[in-house]
Design a protein around this nucleic acid. Structure first.
Lengths: 150, 150
DNA sequence: CCCTGCTGGTAGCATGTTGCAACCAGCTTG
DNA sequence: CAAGCTGGTTGCAACATGCTACCAGCAGGG
């Protein structure tokens, strides 16, 4: 078999997530969905992706219950793609990638799109990994357990 | 051109991040690196990836300054791959993906690897997106600004 | 030093996936 | 009712992925 390796049976949640999002177009589609895009054409113009690819990605995101296809809100006969509850839970993932990109791929002052708090127009606080009792954690402060059953 | 589309000149930090990490394997390599893997063979056994693919991914991660290649710590003549500072900053991304996967792809009680606080052995707190002044934010509480120069 | 195995790759080939462009059917608006 | 939008599908060419075989340098025992 030469198909792309799948990770949907891995016991690592990271692997299953990566498998579900499928590819990077999918993540950018989700980003645009958070940003308000709903229609096929909106995604297509925003991303510049080929339409057949977009079709395939939207289908797989719908199949994976990240997006759902609903009747258009403007009353026309077309359809719209909106995030499901599961899809909205990807918000921290997108924010984390955004903050990593901002910190590492832009020169100081270089123009870029920025996610801000709507109420005050300010940048967001950097994401923090914390323990159950609230201590700030570095990678070294954590370890991976195999949980066989609980 | 039929090469995979690149996003390294996009003005969206999410797109540049996606471009830098490149593909699924890369993210799993980074996950393993956080988990303590250092040697080519460790990554290869852990991921089950073909060696030519692993070679290419390691090279691109090194080129992207996510990993660096250093002399082996055991004194042998081989090399090891360790996360750079930039690579360690991916920690929230991995944690976010892990939490999303845990919440959405495992039946209750289904065995899976789990990231825990080393000191207390407890699961981590869920990541929270917060405003600069500390309010908890939903996706709807945020909006994207184009910043032309600042 | 010599043989054997381990480590970390490279080379070649088959297949899958991506990207582009062309095409098309159903809306919908003047 | 005709022209253009919307949301696709199809075909083809190029590239990426996966598998297997191969191979060079190190390591360790005898």
């Amino acid at each position: 078999m030469v198909t792309r390796t799948r990770f949907d049976d891995s016991d690592c949640p990271v692997a299953r997530s990566v498998d579900a999002i499928g590819d990077w177009w999918s993540l950018l589609i989700v980003r645009d969905a958070f940003d308000g895009s709903r229609r096929f054409g909106e995604f297509q113009r925003s991303l510049g992706v080929a339409k057949n690819i977009l079709t395939a990605r939207l289908r797989s995101l719908v199949a994976g219950d990240v997006l759902e296809s609903v009747p258009a809100s403007d009353g026309s006969a077309y359809r719209e793609y909106v995030l499901t509850a599961k899809g909205r839970e990807l918000f921290p993932v997108i924010v984390a990638l955004r903050q990593w990109g901002e910190a590492n791929f832009f020169a100081p002052g270089e123009p870029h799109s920025q996610l801000v708090d709507r109420r005050r127009g300010e940048r967001l606080r950097a994401l923090e990994v914390r323990s159950a009792d609230g201590r700030l954690l570095d990678p070294d402060d954590t370890t991976v357990h195999k949980v066989s059953a609980e």
